[in-house]
Design a protein around this nucleic acid. Structure first.
Lengths: 114, 114
DNA sequence: ATCATGTGTAATAATTATATTACACATGAT
DNA sequence: ATCATGTGTAATATAATTATTACACATGAT
């Protein structure tokens, strides 16, 4: 968590802002699981689980890898990445400096239109 | 951030999961501001600002106090609270234990219906 | 061939979060 | 009385997130 953009931080904070996702991290912390297995444990559908896993993966808090099982099936395993996140007001202040105000926003630059 | 419920943690993480709210903390870190003042700096409407401030206040990251200005107006000042948030996978795992699975959920207890 | 299991994802519905608009009320200065 | 400033909030619209449903495809076992 260093040298990252405000968007990176927002992905991390958003990643942690849903109970199912905290639960996912908690379960994976005890050991890796493949997707269907994890869906059963959490008692949610796979599509929903994928959505949550994507957010955690985007935030780099979990990672996945494929593996062929003994019975020949392709399994997608997830595990937690190691991370330490420290948040203090001055750190947020630093990050916040890079976030533009509405008036500073110029997503499409047509200022020097000739 | 100790001895708190999963909901408390979720309020904190959600509190940090919007760019305007990071910006608010950043600005208040440099000094307290009253609501209208802050709205002008952020270039957003007061109702919207109130919504964001409420989330930060619910997460106990900012606090407010009223003060009568020299000209006799009641001003609502906001300032940041000091906080240090440390997040690691095992900490999340601990928090997650308190979050029930759908099957463990019994919000309305009609189990011992006579 | 059919079943049980694993993968992935598109399309949609439902719910929350975010943002806007339009009010109401108070104060001191003009 | 009207203006400029501060407060607060209800009602609504818009956008994003979360959740569901319904598919398609692959493998090994029966």
């Amino acid at each position: 968590m260093n040298n990252r953009s405000a968007e990176d931080y927002l992905r991390v904070y958003s990643g942690l802002s849903h109970p199912i996702r905290l639960k996912i991290v908690g379960i994976l912390w005890e050991g890796r699981r493949y997707v269907s297995e994890l869906a059963k444990i959490l008692e949610i559908s796979r599509p929903l689980l994928y959505m949550h896993l994507k957010k955690l993966e985007d935030a780099e808090m979990v990672k996945s890898s494929y593996e062929i099982s003994e019975t020949g099936k392709s399994m997608k395993y997830y595990e937690v990445n190691d991370f330490i996140i420290l948040i203090t007001p001055p750190m947020i202040a630093e990050i916040a400096k890079t976030i533009p105000l509405p008036s500073e926003e110029n997503s499409t630059d047509n200022s020097t239109d000739g």
